[in-house]
Write a protein that binds this DNA or RNA. Structure first.
Lengths: 192, 192
DNA sequence: GTCTATATACAGATAGAC
DNA sequence: GTCTATCTGTATATAGAC
């Protein structure tokens, strides 16, 4: 049902490229400097366009924020599919990927969290929905509701520490072997 | 070394009362509406004083934020003492009190988190210090570093969900019996 | 599609009256 | 101690040229 015109080579993207660059810039500002600093002006400057140029793609601040939330939903689709297919098991995959690796999904989640903490209702709702989707995907892999709570909370804790790292010293997140041991402990405590 | 004049009855407070009311208002705005909305103007209005009146107590936005961080440190002193004295055990006390009950400490932590997410370096540093103090107090009660990580992360996860609740629907936090079961699971997995 | 220029509102902070 | 102006900078958004 797709009619992708693949006969042009250079501008391969269906979603306008400039639009994605603006979202990248907005995301980076939210992560590095917080909601307050992520203004239309700063976003335009960071994306290398003018304010007017930005407002052609996103007619308002609300539209820009909605665009970021839309990106989050798309990235979570992919993540849930990868989690289900993970050879390690869904729980191990989920806990391990809950620590920020600067991949697109991690970045978008932190950015949307900043929006949520700024009182943006749609951002809070989007994060709750994402959390619920993850919980649904993990439920078959955990012993009971309490075990699922534990897995979800450890993941939330990891994200909380990631989110606090902004602009400051890195948070106290288990790395390498420490993470492997933590995952083993969580799996032992929650295995279905 | 203190020369407390206790001979006056009515104004019993050493820290000026208006100052505390301003901090209460600032805190409430941060929690309910986010950092962006917690302006000097809005804080003054919520505290029932004028902008000039607020600026008598806190000469700048930075001073106001520093005042909130100072309040956090004082509240954590009390909490650590209560945790050590808890008949339930430190781990159970810690996990149970990690869910927002609208007590002064919970409120101040969420408020300072908002500041931290807005890029306020001193707020991030203060939260890291608080986390470290808790970890030190809990270390003797956990089997090893991994167990301690697990307890800390569950607590962080609880706070993360509390923090997201702002202005929106309540987060998916275990309550009542579910919380008791979770604490039992965490204790079984981490007991020293 | 992308730009400059501008309107309107509100932020943090100062000055000085009461 | 607490107030009412008021200054200065910056945010979102619009208008309209190129």
């Amino acid at each position: 049902m797709f009619s992708d015109r693949a006969d042009t080579i250079e501008p391969m993207s269906r979603p306008p490229r400039a639009r994605e660059l603006v979202l990248d810039a907005f995301e980076a500002l939210l992560i590095d400097d917080g909601e307050r600093a992520a203004t239309m002006d700063a976003t335009a400057r960071a994306a290398g366009v003018s304010k007017g140029g930005l407002l052609y793609h996103f007619g308002s601040k609300d539209a820009l924020e909605a665009g970021l939330i839309q990106r989050l939903d798309a990235l979570v689709d992919t993540d849930i599919a990868e989690m289900a297919a993970s050879p390690d098991g869904a729980v191990a995959y989920f806990v391990r990927t809950s620590v920020m690796t600067d991949d697109p999904l991690d970045r978008t989640i932190i950015a949307v969290s900043r929006l949520a903490q700024g009182g943006h209702a749609a951002a809070s709702a989007a994060l709750r929905t994402v959390r619920e989707r993850w919980a649904d995907a993990l439920r078959p892999h955990t012993a009971d509701d309490t075990a699922l709570d534990l897995v979800m909370l450890v993941s939330d804790g990891l994200y909380y520490n990631n989110a606090l790292g902004a602009g400051g010293v890195a948070g106290p997140i288990p790395e390498g072997a420490a993470m492997d041991t933590l995952i083993a402990l969580v799996e032992r405590a929650t295995r279905a």
